[in-house]
Design a protein around this nucleic acid. Structure first.
Lengths: 194, 194
DNA sequence: TAGATTGTTAATCGATTAACAATC
DNA sequence: TAGATTGTTAATCGATTAACAATC
């Protein structure tokens, strides 16, 4: 049996070993004195607690470049979801196939979500369409929206919006770059001696 | 002059008004008694502190679907960056133009980054190429890597890696969906009464 | 003036870390 | 056994919140 200690996990995750042991205890993971934890059990328990061993159907809304990239991603199954349908308002895109799925017209979005009990919508539309489509999705009963647009969506309580904003990442990077003392031996913001 | 109070900001951001005032004081933003803060000053100061009013050149590495989507994104300028070049190892992609930029061969990546003092690389390659290209980028002197691959990159201290992993978002959503008590009136995980 | 809001200090709260008996 | 590691409690640390004098 492959085992792993809280010390090794803490080192890899850059957290205190006590933290690992406490969190593991909280989700029902028990270790063995002098041995550590069963690696397989750690994996499967975390996957179960997080919800990755389920499979929810999801609808992709907005089949632009980003939407197409997501449709081409094949690993969703490992993380609890499967994209079962894709929608776009552009008549020229409707009917085309991307990543094995045929694009359906946005007018059918609400009906589809309601009929198939889709709990998650992946929103990759232009900003101006985001709120209106969100309203449609909420009315049709989605429980969560994975929002890739730059719009701050308004939803009723109980509906989860997870924002995937690029700006947070850019802020961290820009902040880091504007403080040269943080990065040694790398390209300075403005100029550099070679 | 347009003004805003810490109370209003706190409400919008869902944080305590004291928190807003403390953070503002920390970055040198001073408010006015009975009035609040100058909205323009708030904006510009935050942008300056975060680093969004600078403009760093960035190189995109991996012109697949996600890379193409990023090349098509025109708002980077507002967040401190401009994508000045794109690279791919596929000879069929090299020479093509995406979002106004001509794809260059990956073999020229290191030389380009070094010559133009590029501080940031946006990594959107397949997993198997990620670490090798990272090594090239680090050797060429990048200060930060915006990592869209699923690989945990190894870099020397001083180089910032910002991971943009989908899995974190999926984990939050899957966790939320697997706890029906959190979402009222929405589609239950498995079945639903209509 | 009276009242609203800031800037800042003090109090609270929670999260992280340290310590250590129990275990194998 | 001796030694390594857990599970858990206690101590520390930091972050959040409350309070309030100062201000206009």
């Amino acid at each position: 049996m492959e085992t792993i200690t809280s010390a090794r996990l803490g080192e890899a995750l850059e957290v205190d070993p006590s933290q690992v042991r406490k969190d593991f205890a909280a989700i029902g993971l028990m270790g063995m004195s002098r041995i550590g934890y069963d690696a397989c059990e750690v994996c499967s328990t975390i996957r179960r607690v997080v919800g990755f061993d389920l499979s929810y159907p999801a609808a992709l809304v907005g089949a632009g470049m980003l939407g197409s990239a997501i449709l081409g991603y094949t690993e969703f199954e490992r993380y609890g979801f499967r994209v079962v349908a894709a929608f776009d308002r552009d008549p020229f895109k409707v009917g085309r196939r991307i990543g094995g799925r045929t694009i359906m017209p946005s007018t059918e979005l609400g009906g589809f979500v309601e009929k198939h009990h889709i709990p998650l919508a992946i929103l990759t539309t232009p900003a101006e369409a985001a709120q209106e489509l969100t309203d449609t999705l909420v009315a049709a009963g989605v429980a969560a929206i994975w929002n890739f647009t730059s719009v701050r969506l308004t939803v009723p309580p109980g509906v989860l919006v997870r924002n995937e904003r690029f700006t947070a990442g850019l802020a961290e990077i820009a902040y880091h770059l504007s403080r040269p003392e943080l990065s040694e031996a790398a390209h300075a913001p403005t100029s550099r001696m070679t």
